[in-house]
Every structure is written in C-alpha cells, then in structure tokens.
Amino acid sequence: MVIHYKCPNCGGEMLFESNTGLLTCQSCGRTDNIEGFSDDYVTKTFSEEEAKEYQCENCGAVIITDADTTATACSFCGAAVVLGDRLSGILAPAKVLPFTISKEEAKAAFQKWCKNGRLTPKGFMEANRIKGITGIYVPFWLYDLDSDAKVDAVGTKVRTYTSGDYIYTETKYYDIYRDIDLNFQKVPVDASEKLNDKLMDKLEPFEFKNLKDFKTPYLAGYIAEKYNYDDNELFPRVELKIDKYIDSYIRSTISGYQSVNYHNKRINTRNKNSYYVLLPVWMFYYDYNKSEHVFAMNGQTGKVVGKPPLSFGKIATWFTSIAGGGFIALKLISWLFLGGLI
C-alpha cells in the first residue's frame, strides 16, 4: 500500500510542515489540518499480495526502498510516499512526535554547533561540506514501568574520641532494609537496528507531552523506519537503563551513615505499558578529510550529538596555554611570597 497526499485545490503534492504542524501544498500553498484531512484526497494503492514492489503514485516508477523503510521519497520524481502496510497491524505506531525544527533551521543550528566546537579543526567548521541532511522518524519503544526494589545493607556510624593516652574509635553497626516502589514513565529505547544506540541515548530528552496520535500524513516528506526489535526483545535494555536511576534513588533514602555495605538487592521490574512511537531526528552526513562523519540532531529540541574530528593543533594550543598559564601563575605566586613582597 502506497500513500500519497494530493492537494484538494490544485492536485499538487502535500508535505508535513514542521513550523505549522499542518499538511502544506508545495505548489499553491494550501494548508490542511492533519486530523481533518479528507480521505478522498489520499491516494492509496494496495500492492498485490505477492509483489514486494511498490509503485509511485505520482509517476508510476518502481519505488526502491530497503525492507525497514516506511516513508521515503520516490527516487525518480521525488514525491513523498508513505508505505502504509508497513505501518499497520502490529507495525502501527501508537504515537508520533512531529518535527518542530525545519530543515533550514536544522542546517543553521548544525553549522553553528560545528563552529562552537573548541577542539574541532578550523577547516571542518568553515568548509560547507554537509553532504546530506535527512529527517528521519526513528522507531522507539516507550515503556511505563513499575519497579519494586528490596535492599538489605549494613551501615556504620563511626565516632572517635580521646580519653587519657588513647584514641578510641567506636563503630556502630546498623541493619538497614528498604522496600521501595518506583514508577517510571515513558522511558525511551531505540528500536532501530541501523542507528547507534549510544548516539540515540545522547539525544534525549524528548518532550513527550507533545506526542500526537499517529497519523500517516506526519511522515509526508520524511524518511521513516519500522522497528527491528519488539518491546519484549528490548525489555532487558530498558531494565539496564533504569537500573542506575533505581540505585541512585535507593542511595538517597539511606543517609546518616559513614559507610553502607549492600548485601542483597532484588529489583523486580514489570512492564506496565509499552508503546511504539516515532521520534524526530535530523541526520547529517558530513565529509571531512575523505571520511564521513555522522551527526544526529533531536528534531524537537535541536540538541546535536556525534563525534566531530579533533584538531591536534587546537588540543596542543589549549594544553600549552593552560599548562603555561598555570606555571606562570604559580611562579608569580611563589615570587610574590618568597620574594618578601607580601
């Protein structure tokens, strides 16, 4: 099933506009609310069951995609197409977080970010070598979790005092027990195989109160992927992710001790609810020194992550300035003090 959005006015192509949150016609400028867009203007073609080929609704060419793509552009005419059958049934996302940063804003923000890199080589910042910017809806699972943590520990309180010729160290031991119920909401885990988990983790946080019920028009004009792992397969990852949050909460409830020794920690996490969502990410492909660098930007907040190249010269300059400045400062201090000026 291939979905294509035609303008009710002029028959032109309609795309999702991030600034307004509306479907916008590229030729006459007509805008339509996604919730109220009439099905009459949505062209859907169901592919025959056997055929794994999709045909572009606009020009009739065969759409070439890889197996995970759910939204893309026709490689011949450039029309935005959404592959509906890859977004239905168990593959239907529950929610979508629409892009709020447009391609131009993303590009400008990325260039600014490149310039701010204190260790980034000069040529990297100046050369305008963005090879490609792609807006991708990345599949994530959001988990609502109930955790029950039971902890046994031994804590000590130490007091020292002197009496006569001796110093006494008095250690009091306490048996500590905590039973804590924790509830986590909307913990995101990236469900796409292609994207680097570490990179995706650094993109957080997303503002989930702007989540919208999923409608295919949000994807018009972007690339979208379907999930490679379901919520059960990713459950161990989300457990690992909240593990450190649980530990820090446990520690915050145990106070007043000099040392705490944990003997037993049982954490039981239940998946209360999990839903499949698409989150907006701008991907940048950047050429520098014959190698490609990949950066990602949170399509909602504009936060940029990715490993920029490091300039040896800049590192050396920072290093010598700090070390040299520190040396001069210390010399100056000792000169003032030892020279009898103070």
């Binding site: 048996d175 500590i176 027990y177 905590r178 039973d179 804590i180 119920d181 924790l182 509830n183 986590f184 909401q185 909307k186 913990v187 909240i242 949050y245 909460y249 409830t253």
Partner: peptide, 11 residues
C-alpha cells in the same frame, strides 16, 4: 523518567 517513588517499608 521517574514518575513516583515511595518507600513502602524501611528499617
């Protein structure tokens, strides 16, 4: 991501 947390039992 922590919504609520409650210490049910402490010793």
């Amino acid at each position: 991501y922590l919504n609520t947390a409650q210490v049910m039992n402490r010793k």
